[in-house]
Computed example of a mutant assay.
Amino acid sequence: MINTTDLYLLAEESTDNQNPLLPAWYDIIWSLVAFAVVLFVFWKYVIPRYQKVLDERRETIEGGIERAEAAQAEANASLTAYREQLAGAREEAAGIRDEARQQGTQIIADMKTQATAESDRIIANGAAQLAAQRQQIVSELRGDVGRLSVDLAEKLVASELSDGTKQAGTVNRFLAELDDVADQAAK
């Protein structure tokens, strides 16, 4: 077995030649081997997965941005179409209003024409009725005036004018005189 004093001596010999700040050459080699293994594992497995995750995130973000831009473009197109439809509807409404005004004006003109025609017809009927009634009243008055004038003449003259021919001649002469008096008064 190894004696502790021998071990102590060996330790003293090895430390005398070495700088305490620099590690031993075998520690450097084993550290480089371990670093190379870790670097190889990172290079082969970790970095590609990390890169894949980053690429997926970039694609997701870019895809989201593209979808947002597409949605924005679609919204702008919809807004433009809506504004065009609204402008078309306003123009159509203005056309309908103008057409309604024209129709209203035409209806009013037609109603005025109909009212004038109806008024003229009523006036013409009234005038015809008035003329017929006047004619009837004139003929009734002629008969009454004739009879009254004959009665008056009989009383005044004290002669009898009951003969029909004489009576008719007297009535006609009297009425003709009345017509002449009425015509002169009208002038």
Rank of each mutant, 00 (worst) to 15 (best):
Q136S: 09
A168S: 13
V37Q: 04
R173S: 14
V41L: 13
A34C: 07
A132T: 10
W43S: 14
A11C: 02
Q102G: 09
E13Q: 09
D16C: 00
E154K: 15
Y45N: 11
T60K: 15
R121D: 07
S162E: 04
D98R: 08
I65G: 00
A94Q: 10
A127D: 10
L130Q: 15
I137M: 10
A127T: 13
N17C: 01
D16F: 13
A115L: 11
F35V: 07
G146H: 04
A68C: 01
A100D: 11
Q184P: 00
F42C: 12
A89N: 10
Q72W: 02
E154W: 01
Q85H: 08
A77I: 01
S119Y: 10
M1Q: 03
A93E: 09
E118M: 12
R173K: 06
L79F: 11
Q135H: 14
S139R: 15
E154G: 02
P48A: 01
A109H: 08
L175F: 02
V157H: 11
G169D: 14
A36E: 03
D183M: 04
S14I: 12
A77K: 09
A75N: 11
P23D: 03
R147F: 14
A81E: 08
G63A: 06
S162K: 04
A34T: 07
D6F: 03
E69G: 01
E92K: 09
E84V: 05
N125S: 12
A81F: 03
R58S: 06
E92L: 05
A100C: 05
A158I: 06
N172I: 00
P20V: 02
G126D: 11
I61T: 06
W43M: 13
W30V: 08
E92A: 08
L7Q: 03
G164M: 08
L39Q: 05
K52C: 00
V46Q: 04
A128C: 01
I137K: 05
E91F: 04
R49C: 02
W25V: 12
K112C: 01
A132S: 08
S14K: 11
A100M: 08
A71D: 06
L7E: 04
R83M: 04
R121Y: 14
Y50L: 11
V38D: 02
G95Q: 15
R90D: 10
Q72K: 14
D6H: 04
G169E: 15
Y45P: 00
N3F: 01
A127E: 14
E62C: 00
D144H: 15
D151M: 13
A34D: 07
E177Y: 06
N172C: 01
I65W: 07
A127F: 04
D144L: 14
A158E: 15
E69K: 13
T170F: 15
D120R: 15
L152V: 05
G64M: 05
K52Q: 09
A128I: 03
A158R: 14
E74D: 11
A115W: 08
R101Y: 04
I137E: 14
A153W: 03
D179V: 07
G169L: 15
V38L: 13
E91W: 05
E62A: 06
V150G: 00
R147E: 12
N125F: 10
Q136K: 14
D110I: 06
N3K: 10
E91K: 12
A11I: 02
T5Y: 13
I107F: 11
V171G: 00
L178H: 02
G164A: 15
F174A: 03
V150C: 03
I2K: 07
D179G: 02
Q167Y: 03
T170M: 15
E59N: 10
K44T: 03
Y45H: 07
